[in-house]
Design a protein around this nucleic acid. Structure first.
Length: 592
RNA sequence: GGCCUCGUAGUUCAGCUGAAUAGAACGUCAGAUUCCGGUUCUGAAGGUCGGGGGUUUGAAUCCCUCCGAGGUCACCA
């Protein structure tokens, strides 16, 4: 039984008995006792003073006395200021440990019957993934995992932006410059190859603009009407008309990009249940807009364009259909949301999208509400901030964008260098080693990014992230390997890890408390859609083990019972670490 | 200019629905340790929680205001 529930229940009884009042839930506040004080669980008595009409000290003492004599689990209490610190008996904590150990699905919540869709990644097909996408993918993936652990049925989807002027730019530059270069002929990853031509296009555009300006054109005019840009727009028109040659090239080049993306996704460890393509969904939503128009939710301007008025919500008006009847981004998102909610019977839909689109999602929700969809409140924009580097911001114009593949590769190679330096890998095969470097490099990256509150702008420092000390992925991986090594040695001695009636010291009770917190953290993190909570919890647990390990000798302990109990405790720590890191997609090594 | 988000040790981050002396880590400094100024261990210093006001027995947390940083307000996506 959860100790805080136990105390809350007792407190309620005590108040009723002593003061004859049924105390309201939110007056019964408990928390883990701070380290400086004696005790396990602390009840805050301030809120109860208006019931007792006595001083904090007297109230605390009366309640403590009642609880102590009415519950076998409580062995002592003390009152400091308005805080009633309660110590629970050793046998109680052993029972808690036993409960944790016996629960094979520890942390896994029962099925909720809810279906939740998580959309993340959502790349453009004109260039490779970069550091920003990494944050997106890692957040999306771990939120999806987190919701699964919370018992929900999760559908992971990716909406690929595969159409529009941007891909035409790459296509055009490829046609002009490449000499039919392919990923196979060049040995380049498909997404990088296409990205190369996107850059080439922009270089050509810049050149043309400069020369036009030199010839006396207005800069703005030149930027709009450079010949190559006109050509790209013509290509887009041809694409929309279904021009065979253009569509063929479009298919080929996008295919290269998808091959490239797949490799990056695989290495990052993310996957999707379904992939949507904008080329197939961009017409959705029009009928919804027309319906809204008929119902008077939207209105038409003189030139024929359709708008939604949101001035009563303190916002502007929003365009939904252009004068020529074509749709915009918002139109499509209205349509896809509607389609998904009805097709999958969703209870919730989470969009993992950068915070520059906060306004978009605010508007999306309002419009859906205006259209009368009850589920409009069940869309959630998981908004995340930019990732900056020690060198400063990434700017595509200045070419300081960090490529995802390059970054992953450099993380893994740094992991290789530092682990080789530390040694201890002699008895590993080449294959095992490479696997270790891979999970260390990626573990460093994933942990460092996920541990930060999503909505905050963050700074990614590769050097700091891969340090084996500190609040890092490798530290947790190292802790795990260390525990597994202890357990292997114990096994060689023929020892079994189990709960016994041995004694517990203060640190061990603390660890049991922390372990016991795991399911609570899972639920909390799920409600907040924030895997960062899980990451920081895992770090706390790992740090607790290291302190513990430093204080007591586990293998040298002579009492077999105590030894067995210590082993089961650390075994459980390693298991919970694995479960927590599994949510973030970090693999923990058996040795390193 | 309107709207949204953020501002916590030198740095990167925690701080749950308000509670005791605001926590880690890295860095810094001191001591110990070894072939070593690099590794490891121990310890210390370091904070007006952006400023001001308010609500409360109690505020980093809630409200108002100002300052600072970022984002966004397209017949772009």
């Amino acid at each position: 039984m959860n100790p805080e529930y136990l105390i809350t229940g007792l407190l309620k009884d005590a108040i009723k008995e002593l003061y004859g009042v049924e105390a309201h839930e939110n007056l019964l506040q408990t928390q883990a006792t701070r380290k400086e004080f004696e005790g396990d669980i602390t009840a805050v008595v301030f809120p109860l003073l208006k019931i007792s009409r006595k001083s904090p000290e007297i109230t605390g003492d009366e309640l403590g006395k009642y609880m102590e004599s009415n519950c076998d689990h409580i062995c002592s209490y003390n009152v400091v200021k308005g805080f009633l610190n309660i110590s629970l008996s050793e046998s109680y904590w052993i029972d808690v440990l036993k409960e944790i150990v016996l629960d094979n699905d520890f942390g896994q919540q029962p099925p909720s019957g809810k279906s939740i869709m998580v959309e993340f990644s959502s790349p453009n097909t004109n260039k490779p993934l970069h550091l920003g996408h990494i944050r997106n993918n890692l957040l999306g993936w771990s939120v999806a995992r987190l919701l699964e652990v919370n018992g929900h049925n999760v559908v992971k989807v990716n909406l690929v932006n595969d159409r529009g002027i941007h891909i035409c730019k790459s296509m055009l530059a490829w046609k002009k410059l490449s000499g039919e270069e392919t990923p196979y002929s060049s040995g380049m990853k498909g997404d990088h190859l296409v990205g190369k031509y996107y850059v080439a296009f922009n270089d050509m555009l810049k050149e043309q603009v400069e020369s036009l300006v030199k010839d006396g054109f207005d800069r703005e005019e030149a930027e709009k009407n450079a010949p190559i840009l006109v050509e790209a727009r013509e290509m887009l028109v041809k694409w929309e008309e279904g021009d065979k040659e253009v569509v063929e090239l479009w298919k080929t080049m996008n295919g290269w990009v998808y091959d490239g993306f797949d490799k990056t996704y695989e290495r990052l460890g993310v996957s999707f249940d379904k992939i949507y393509y904008e080329s197939q969904t961009y017409l959705l939503g029009k009928s919804l807009v027309n319906e809204g128009l008929e119902n008077g939710v939207f209105y038409r301007k003189e030139n024929g364009s359709v708008w939604c008025d949101m001035t009563s919500e303190g916002l502007d008006e929003k365009l939904l259909l252009r004068a020529d009847g074509t749709s915009v981004y918002m139109t499509q998102d209205l349509g896809t949301a509607h389609q998904r909610f009805s097709e999958y019977k969703l209870d919730e839909h989470i969009y993992v999208v950068g915070n520059e689109q906060n306004y978009h999602f605010q508007v999306l929700r309002i419009i859906l509400k205006k259209l009368g969809f009850a589920w409009s409140d069940n869309i959630y924009h998981l908004s995340y901030g930019m990732v900056e580097l020690p060198e400063g911001k990434m700017k595509s114009r200045e070419g300081t964008v960090v490529d995802a593949d390059d970054l992953i590769e450099s993380m893994v190679s740094t992991a290789r260098d530092t682990s080789l330096e530390l040694g201890k890998l002699e008895d590993m095969s080449e294959e095992e080693r490479n696997h270790l470097f891979e999970i260390l490099g990626l573990g460093a990256l994933k942990y460092f990014i996920v541990k930060v509150d999503p909505k905050k702008t963050m700074l990614f420092d590769p050097k700091e992230s891969i340090d084996f000390n500190g609040n890092t992925g490798p530290f947790i991986q190292y802790t795990h390997a260390r525990i597994r090594s202890i357990l292997r040695k114990a096994e060689l001695e023929g020892l079994h890890a189990e709960v016994t009636e041995g004694t517990l010291n203060k640190k061990e009770i603390e660890i049991i408390k922390t372990l016991n917190l795991f399911p609570v953290r899972i639920i909390e993190a799920g409600n907040e859609h924030s895997p960062a909570v899980v990451a920081n919890y895992a770090y706390e647990l790992a740090r607790e083990f290291n302190q513990y390990y430093h204080e007591v000798s586990i293998l040298k302990e002579t009492d077999k019972n105590i030894k067995a109990q210590r082993l089961i405790l650390i075994d459980k720590i390693s298991l919970v670490l694995r479960k927590a890191m599994n949510i973030i997609g970090i693999e923990l090594p058996e040795r390193m």
